[in-house]
Each structure stands twice: as structure tokens, then as C-alpha cells.
Design a protein around this nucleic acid. Structure first.
Lengths: 340, 340
DNA sequence: AAATCTATCCAAAGCGCTTTGGAAATTATG
DNA sequence: CATAATTTCCAAAGCGCTTTGGATAGATTT
């Protein structure tokens, strides 16, 4: 804390007005046992003297710091993971801007990778709640969180208990929209490039893909499902692998835009044009999707809304002791462009 | 077991060992007036009991919270400002992950737009330092910061005093690289799409552009400089305006990739092809740059490094009382692709 | 042996705030 | 009018930690 000397504190206001510390505190906190006249006086004096409350002291007394900790990865596999995370965080920031909570980011590597338990990180800063983006299914923190020790909201990881909840896009619906659209364009042999099992959404999207096929009486064929890691590179090789095994594929549905882009490039390199020879549908609708050539037909996730709703859910859990955590599902949208 | 909420505190360790609170505290803080034997004992016991220090209490006593506040805009004009910000923040996070500082984001709109002074925001949370990204030149916070009340580092805003410093890309060099390259490709009539004056970098880039021209004995012509707002849309119209006035332009240098992309689209819409009819060079090297068609020739800013160095500079100011704030300049790089 | 150091420890005060459990002053009630 | 109820205020304890200014016992010096 910088140059805290000269800071006006409650006792200064009390002295100035000949009141007790207690009364000043209660006046500023709008308690009912302070007369309106005194309240007004205290508030005015506080403003006049430039009083700034010390939240550390308040936190200490209240055992509540109005602090939410935000966890996310800066990098996923190959590169910086901006396309998704940034907007989600924007939504979170937006929600909390109307509350008394601030957001704190605690480098998980503060002392070596995961050497500190989540609990110690949270308790030491007096964090009141957690928002966790894009956690991998093998992350050791998950076990800790299951113990339900702190209000938590996950993005895209389904965990629900007394104090923890999650928010996700309607992945099933999203995948079905993609399949519906491809089928409506006459495709029946639709391959799937999914992400790995470390991302919880992967299994959901596989399910959505299968349900989509089923709806149109297309049999699921594991042969034409490839596993990538959500990066462009993995999409590239996945697409090539698909066509090594099977020439009749007319469409590819990829579980991320980056993989879709990779797939398109992979196809180009083996002489196949998108959308003429093969149709490709992506997932996410990241910024790139509408700038890439061909512009990507994709399933849009409302990233800002995901963040905003995650924050809202967490806020409910924290503020309302008998709030029943409830998963929130955000609508998705088919964005038709040129790749399919 | 030790307290209602189960948190172990220093006094619990003291009681367990029959030591005083003072000694336990000093042992954990590695003071020299505690015997090695006692130290070892205290540390072991702390670990055994699962002691987690309460940083609010420590902050209160020390008047120092090891907290850095991060300011950035989620949106710039039209859309989310991910391309640049996210990676810069990643660099900042990376640096602080090896320190004892955590990052806090305080929604500036906590109670209406800019209604709270920076000072009150910082002092209330006991923030020790500030990093400020992409501030506009008319932002009221700037005046406050000039008062030098808290260690601060700006990105791309040149302010230097006892406790405040800044980090920026080598914008002059960047612009000159662009011009050098265009000239080497035979261009002499090079238009410039700059950003507005609200961004401090704009004037620097204009200067760089002019120096670049001068170096090659090309006269600066204000007629072929347009002002945009760093968005694609503004680049679109800027490019069209340029060709409304003047048909001899053979190259455009844009002060952001988004404006470059907009310019290319604007040119396409009036029947001009890039790079065949007009060469376009962008600035930033955002993710889009290499996916757009044509792939963008541009000046790469090392965003991660910008963030990392900003954090490092701030750390120096905070930790070392007689550190002389010093602006840091990050190298830029010409990335040659297809648009020029 | 007494006097002086030195290493090790601790009681208590304080950081700025909230809250408990009354007390005093005021108003209402019988 | 005395008593009860209400309003308004406050002293003091406590949140968990650091630090100041000794105290104590053992080691060293004279």
C-alpha cells in the first residue's frame, strides 16, 4: 500500500465531529440506529475530508473481501488463447462492474506449477468466489473444488454441488444445428473432427454430433471421427487423415474454428476445394471466422454472454446463502457463410 | 478445529509450540533473532497444521498488499479489443507469476463512469502499482497520475516522472521499416491511414511515416493521409476517400491491421486488387494478419514482451525506492506476406 | 567473580474497521 | 406523574498480523 500516511480514517471523522468511532462507522454503513441528521453530517464530513475506506481492514473485520478470483489459461497448446477467453472475461468484467466485487488474478505459478493448493491461494487473499475458464479434465484443482469449499462457477465444465455451478453453451444444440444444416445441403457422409478428452466439451459435442446424425437416420461411423486438440495444426492433419481412409466424405464438422481452418488448409493441400469439393463447418465463431477465406460457416458461441452469466451465477451463490446452484445454458447460433 | 471456520492462525501455532505469537511470526518471516532450531520447528508445524497466512491482515499491518491493478478497455470503438490486449496481459501475468504480486482488475464503472477517482480506487484496495493499457489522451485519469501518487507504468502513453514510466513499441522504427520496404518495392506515392489523436501512438506513427518518407527524399503530402479510428470500418472508408482524391497512389500504409484489412476491402469494392493494383502494409501483426486473404504484410509488435517489460518496469519502481523510471522500447519487426 | 555481550524470546501496541452489549436521552404510555 | 418503550449513541473487544522495546539466560570478557 503506497503512502498510506495522511490517509483520513474513521477516527479522524469521529474526532472532527465529536462523535464516536462506532457511530461514524454505522452512519456510513447506513445503520438504522443513527439519526438521519447525524448520518448526513458524517457523510458530508467524510466527503469533505476525502475519506477512503480501507478494504483490507474491512475485509479483516468482516471476513469477506468482495473479491472474485479469475482462472484461465493464457495459452492452449500452440498459441495464445485469445479468441475465446478475452470476450468471456469482458462479460465477467461487465457484470461485476455493477457490484462491489473486484476481480483478482492470481498467477497459478506463483511458486511453481500448482505447488499451492487452490484453497491456500483463495484463503490467503480472502477470495469470496471463483470463476474458472477452460479447465482440463485432468486438472488437480477439480478434486479440490469438489470438496465444495468455495463458491465457484466453471465455464464448460459440468460440476454442480452446494456451492459450485457452471455455465456452458448449448453444445448439443450447436452440433445438431451444424448437422441439420449440412444435411439440408444434401450431405450424408459427414465427418467429425473433435477435440481431445481433456476438454469437457469434447464428449458433449460428440454426443451432439451423434444425435444430429441420428435425427436424420444417418448411422454413426467412428471411422470418420478424428481427434484433434483444438488447434489449427491438428485440424490440418485430421482432415488429411480422414481422406486417407475414406474418399466419400462430402462434409466435415470441426469442433473449433481453428481446427476447421486447419482442415480447410489440409484439404487444399491434397487438392480439395472448400466448399466445392467438401463442405466444412466450424465451431465458436471466433473473429477469424469471418475473415478467413472462405469465410467460415460455423456455430457461434456467445462468449460475452457466457462470461456475463457465469458472473451472475457466481454472484447469486455468494450473496444468497440459500441459492440453489443451477447450470446455465447459453444459446448458440448457426452462422452461415461460405465454407459450407 | 482451531477456529469456527477451521483456519489456522499464527496464535494457534504459538499455542501448539508454547511459543509467543511474536516468535512464530518472526520465524516464518525468517528474522535473525529466532534460532534455527525454532525456525525449523515453526515452519514444520505451520505446514503440519495447514497454516495459510491472511494477506488482508498482513496488508493492514504492513500497509502493503502486493497488489497491482490492471486497467484496460474491453472495447475499442466497434468491437472487443482482443487482438492486442490479450497477449499484453499474458505477458504481464507471466512476469508477476514469479513475484509475490497478484493482479487486480477494478471495474472502472463500479459506480458509474469514472465517478471514483483513481486514487480512491487504488487506496481502498491498497494497490501498490498500476499498469495502464491503451489509455486515451483525453482520459481524466492522466491528470491524476501526473501527480505521481502511485507507481505506474503505461503502455503506449509517454509519461515519465518520479514514479511513472512507460513501455512502447519502437513506433518510429516500425513505420520506417514499412516505408523502407514499400520503397524497395518501387513505391513512391505512399498514402497513410493513421489513427485518431486520442491514441498517443498516432502522432508517433505519423512522425515515423514522415521520417520514412524523408529518408527516401519523398515529400510528405498531407492530402494522402487519412485519419481512422483503428477499426476495420474506418480503414474501409479511408481507403476509398484516398482514391477519390488521388489516383496515383500505389501503396497504403495503415497504422493498424484492422484498418489495413478495411482498406483492402474498400479497395476491392472500387475495383482495385491488393497487392496487384495497390500494396498495403498494416501494423500490429494480430492473429488475423496471417489468415486474411491476402495475407497481410505488416509490422509486428511483440505484445507479450510489451506486457512483460511493463510489468518488469513497474516491479522495479515498486521494489526499489531509488529506481529511476525509464521508458522501455520494444523492438518491432517487418513481416513480409502477400499484401505488399 | 563481576561486568559485558549476544542470542533468543516475548508482551503489548497498533494497522483501520465492524460489532456487541449496553447506557443515556427522549418519547410514549398508563 | 412514574414507568416503559424507543431512539441515538458509544466503550471495548476483536479480526490476524507485524513491530517495538525490552527481558532473560547463556556466553564472553575483564
Amino acid at each position: 500500500m503506497y503512502r498510506k500516511d495522511g490517509m483520513v480514517k474513521l477516527s479522524d471523522i469521529a474526532r472532527e465531529l465529536g462523535l464516536s468511532l462506532t457511530t461514524v462507522s454505522r452512519a456510513l454503513n447506513n445503520y438504522s440506529d443513527v439519526s438521519p441528521k447525524t448520518k448526513k453530517l458524517v457523510i458530508e464530513t467524510a466527503k469533505r475530508l476525502g475519506y477512503i475506506p480501507n478494504l483490507s481492514a474491512r475485509g479483516l473485520a468482516l471476513r469477506k473481501n468482495h473479491l472474485v478470483s479469475l482462472f484461465y489459461y493464457d495459452y492452449v497448446n500452440s498459441g495464445p488463447y485469445q479468441p475465446f477467453t478475452f470476450e468471456v472475461v469482458a462479460g465477467i468484467r461487465k457484470f461485476f462492474s455493477n457490484t462491489k466485487y473486484d476481480l483478482i488474478m492470481i498467477p497459478e505459478t506463483r511458486r511453481g506449477r500448482k505447488s499451492q493448493s487452490l484453497k491456500s491461494i483463495c484463503y490467503s487473499r480472502g477470495v469470496d468466489g471463483l470463476i474458472i475458464l477452460g479447465i482440463l479434465t485432468d486438472d488437480p484443482y477439480i478434486e479440490e473444488l469438489k470438496a465444495d469449499f468455495i463458491p465457484t462457477v466453471f465455464l464448460d465444465y459440468p460440476l454442480l454441488s452446494k456451492k459450485v455451478s457452471y455455465v456452458e453453451s448449448d453444445n448439443i444444440k450447436g452440433c445438431m444445428l451444424a448437422i441439420d444444416y449440412l444435411v439440408s445441403q444434401g450431405h450424408r457422409r459427414i465427418a467429425f473432427i473433435n477435440g481431445h478428452e481433456l476438454a469437457a466439451v469434447s464428449s458433449v459435442r460428440l454426443k451432439g454430433y451423434m444425435e444430429g446424425l441420428k435425427k436424420h437416420n444417418i448411422e454413426f461411423d467412428p471411422e470418420i471421427t478424428e481427434i484433434g486438440d483444438y488447434t489449427e495444426r491438428s485440424g490440418y492433419f485430421a482432415a488429411r487423415n480422414l481422406f486417407l481412409k475414406e474418399k466419400n466424405i462430402t462434409a466435415i464438422f470441426a469442433a473449433s474454428d481453428l481446427m476447421a481452418i486447419g482442415a480447410i488448409r489440409g484439404l487444399n493441400d491434397i487438392g480439395l476445394k472448400v466448399p466445392d469439393d467438401v463442405a466444412v463447418v466450424g465451431y465458436d465463431d471466433i473473429l477469424l471466422a469471418e475473415y478467413f477465406q472462405p469465410r467460415l460457416t460455423t456455430i457461434r458461441q456467445h462468449k460475452f454472454e457466457l462470461g456475463f452469466q457465469a458472473a451472475a451465477e457466481l454472484h447469486s451463490i455468494m450473496e444468497n446463502p440459500n441459492h440453489e446452484p443451477k447450470a446455465r445454458t447459453i444459446k448458440v447460433e448457426l452462422i452461415i457463410r461460405d465454407s459450407a
